[in-house]
Design a protein around this nucleic acid. Sequence first.
RNA 1: CGGAGCGUAGCGCAGCCUGGUAGCGCACCAGUCUGGGGGACUGGGGGUCCCGGGUUCAAAUCCCGGCGCUCCGACCA
Length: 429
Amino acid sequence: MRLSRYFLPVLKEAPAEAEIASHSLMLRAGMIQQLSAGIYNWLPLGHAVLKRIEQIVREEMNRAGAIEILMPTIQPADLWRESGRYDAYGKEMLRITDRHERDMLYGPTNEENVTDIFRRHVRSYKQLPLNLYHIQWKFRDEIRPRFGVMRGREFLMKDAYSFDADFEGAKRSYDAMFLAYLRAFSRMGLTAIPMVAETGPIGGNMSHEFQILASTGESAVYYDAAFEEVDLGAPDLDIERLKSLYAATDEMHEPEKCEVAADRLRAGRGVEVGHIFYFGTKYSEAMGATVTGPDGSDVPVEMGSYGIGISRLVGAIIEAFHDERGIVWPEDVAPFKVGLVNLRPGDEATSAMADELYAKLEKAGVTVLLDDRDERAGVKFATMDLIGLPWQVTVGPRGVAAGTVELKARGTGEREEMTPEALLARLSA
RNA sequence: CGGAGCGUAGCGCAGCCUGGUAGCGCACCAGUCUGGGGGACUGGGGGUCCCGGGUUCAAAUCCCGGCGCUCCGACCA
């Protein structure tokens, strides 16, 4: 992408309303634009990141055996009356009336909807286990939206729903999601700490929330150092052990009862980005979602639901990875891998070199943002640092004369002069 | 939902108290010089001063009502 033809409305000054780093940086980097309280437009750069996170989550869901569907944002109230949640959910649910005076709602979650899909099509225990997920916009009319996309009213969520014939099966489904979550967050460069959670209005009695570590996170967390050493690729990975490791938020942490050795107890700050629940037959019983078991009798299915806040993750990742200059994207979620700076678009030799590198990198499948604007060097460097692409390549008349370009790693700030060939080899790897 | 505040150019703000020509910085446009960390100079464009009502000869400014947004607290992916 050529920056001169892109749409990247960066801001030099931080908008007054942004209180936290990620919100301010997302506005400044031209990723989002607020439309209303807790409701945002996603501009090209923000959209690109959102899609990358979404794709990582999708891949890990698929790998764990879940199957993607897409349920609507607008749902009929009658479905929610069946589960009893139409009245129970309260003012957080956005209620809408259609032209026929039918009660509708903008979905805050989809348990009812997916249970309805299940009960209409699944009859036998032989069709289980089944895990259906979708990635769809949700709306929760928060009392006080804040922190940009971290607590918006409209947000993009991946929600998966598992169906099993018995508790043992449900537990296997739960564990598969537990592991998939750790893998997904890890791929985004994050350390995720799972902690036992209250089940809240969704109900059930087995639940974990996943906090990712970020120095500016909203809640203090305490956890066993073992979480930092987990090898998610290990064939003998013991999920029960992971679940038993100590982890607690500020409110739940009791120093006198904590059994972790002092030198193994870590304190940090976290942002909740995922939450998984086992809730048994709460919805299947209320809504008549049953399967015929091996003995010929109908039993309500055992269910669980598993959410990841995709849009919130964009902010959470920035909270975890930024410095005083701007965002520092982990490579796997970066909107572009490389920021290629043409320092002198008016200079023929420099532009020829920049254009050639741009073409070759794109041909090699590397995503590149080429800054070909007629701006001064400082403006270009500041823009690149702000939007945080992992690799900055500077092509300027000085280097071109010497046959070199400069490679800078955004994270460490390390710079290196090298030939264009060496650069291509390095970045194409 | 309790408490506090804000709304003036795309962004950040001043002007309001004490009513009388709507301003500053950045951004934008044209030009000149510049050119490896947000450059300089010259010229220029851009405003329903959130909306409605009231007071007044006169309202961005005072009064009343509304809307929107933000912050603190209680609640949440």
